[in-house]
Design a protein around this nucleic acid. Structure first.
Lengths: 341, 341
DNA sequence: ATGAAAGCGCTAACAA
DNA sequence: TTGTTAGCGCTTTCAT
């Protein structure tokens, strides 16, 4: 590693003090023009760059945000990440990113690493396993150490911090309502994410819509498929009930797989079977038929989270109360649902 | 920000020197057992964590790798990122990640930020604009400053550093050969990435395959669609030539859109028209019909790049020659191509 | 067994 | 206008 040039090197070169060099490079009025000029020129020539580590130590600030995301292959999280990145880079923050891979252990290890790495704040969406375990000690510790956290999407009520969530309940309510209004008589809900806070909220929204239309809630139409169950097997049993004419899928994979089975069964979509699904990625858009989606506006969520965190970091003194921002979903109608007239 | 406890705080508490505390926490034999015990206990109680910034300053190492990726919504890059993350976290490195968003300016700014942030190394795949501009000063400077770089996928011959590439030429050769062997008479190549090094290589592979089968190369079958051209318009003109019975798409979006048009034209796939495409994501897998893909093994590429970089970081003294590792592609046959017998 | 001191690279208050 | 000093948090060598 070719040693990088330091203030000291420059100072030695001109037989002046380090402080003089420091001031000269900052164009301080305390320094004579000639001195400034020669020092600045020399610095440029030798590509002087201040050592950020030293500055961080001095300022007790790293201008770095930790981002913990369960899975980057997931469209939604990828979009959120883009949003975070956009704002962070705009405001001059680095992103230290970790993928928890839905694992509690990895999340804890990650948070630990991040804290050691002394960063100014953390943006996180909980790993599935963490939401199952309901153990948030690692995050509570982080908060106690004065490191601000912004949670998004998969949050926990137990933690006192800023949050950005999707209007999951409302989104499910709207989508279900749309299915009903467009003529569906029996809408089933397909969830492979019943472990997640957002999964539970979406179920509530679904139920609320049924109530709203005075349709009795049938527990057997609420299909929760665990990680270790075979999707196709469970799904085929449900689809054996030919009176089901609508599916609300809580995330992409459920829709993709359900669609495959429904097509196998020669249903006409959307006439005999309508499908709506949370998350709006290219996948749903390009399937045949294309699937109507409940967009969560991932990018906007990411941007909002980043703004909130940076705001908190840069005003750490003013202890404002924590807020939870709710980002409204919107329904994107495609071929898999009937139109309303 | 609740101030974190430091060695000094502990030292004051026990009226010992900072050095003593430091040694005690490291279980040094120079310190008496009683002293060690009380200090260690106190440290644990108060959640003492060494300040990494201070250590970084001391060690001139940050255990941090910068990752610059053109676009995280791209399946391939997302997979590579996962691979990098996997190895990095395993070896105790942080990832500072930036999305260049295909912009030269953002890439330069990013590299600049990263260098200021003093990291131990960089993994990068060039932005499209950078490959067009062919201006690599920012990266050359980085190398000159002794910061190792590993480039992957979109590389430049001009830079002397370790590289990980896909066997693009060979992949295109194999895929084209497969199309021909499975009966295609006239295979067109569809590229929206002719700006990229990988795009050019894939064209070469395509040509090589035609040569190999003694099929004349027709330049009009090599369809290069620029960012500002309308895909559908150009594509319809090509497809007007009904003798074309095979498409080699150089990335996902071309395949998705070409498929849509081909379906509109009522072609039978793969009988009348076969399609193969670079990149292996969920999208191609779930389209109807599913598209045969040339997998680039993104995750493996990421892991390889991370290993190479960390190897280089941890053995900076031994100036080993730079190597370029080639990761072989593999063809995943799906419904859009005919089988070979 | 413990501590003093130097130093990593930089800034800022204060002297000269 | 320039320099001295102290300090950010830590490690390590060399006294004591």
């Amino acid at each position: 590693m070719k040693k990088r040039i330091t203030l000291k090197d420059i100072a030695n070169n001109f037989n002046v003090s380090i402080a003089t060099v420091s001031k000269a490079l900052k164009d301080s009025h305390e320094i004579s023009i000639q001195t400034k000029e020669k020092i600045q020129e020399y610095a440029k020539l030798h590509h002087y760059k201040p050592n950020v580590t030293a500055l961080n130590l001095l300022n007790k600030r790293t201008n770095t945000i930790g981002v913990v995301i369960p899975n980057i292959m997931n469209t939604f999280f990828a979009k959120v990440f883009m949003g975070i990145e956009h704002i962070a880079s705009q405001k001059g923050y680095h992103l230290v990113s970790c993928i928890s891979n839905e694992s509690y252990e990895k999340e804890v290890k990650t948070i630990d690493l991040l804290k050691h790495g002394s960063l100014d704040g953390v943006i996180i969406s909980l790993a599935e396993e963490t939401q199952v375990k309901q153990n948030f000690t690692h995050l509570k510790n982080t908060l106690n150490e004065g490191i601000p956290i912004v949670m998004f999407d998969r949050i926990s009520e137990e933690l006192e911090c800023d949050k950005v969530v999707v209007s999951d309940l409302e989104g499910a309510f709207h989508a279900t309502s749309h299915l009903i209004k467009s003529g569906c008589k029996r809408v089933a809900l397909i969830s492979v994410i019943d472990n997640l806070s957002v999964g539970k909220l979406r179920v509530e929204g679904y139920k609320k819509a049924l109530n709203h239309f005075n349709i009795p809630i049938e527990e057997r139409l609420i299909v929760r498929i665990g990680n270790h169950e075979d999707f196709d097997t469970v799904m085929k049993i449900i689809l054996a009930d030919k009176s089901i004419d609508g599916l609300l899928c809580l995330e992409e994979s459920a829709a993709v797989n359900a669609l495959r089975l429904v097509k196998q069964m020669q249903y006409n979509i959307p006439e005999d079977m309508s499908i709506a699904c949370f998350t709006n990625g290219k996948l749903l858009q390009h399937l045949t038929p294309s699937i109507s989606a409940i967009s969560q506006h991932g990018r906007h969520i990411g941007e909002t989270a980043a703004k909130m965190l940076i705001e908190r970091i840069e005003n750490e003194n003013e202890a404002k109360p924590f807020v939870t921002k709710v980002i409204k979903t919107s329904l994107i109608e495609r071929e898999s649902t009937k139109k309303l007239y």
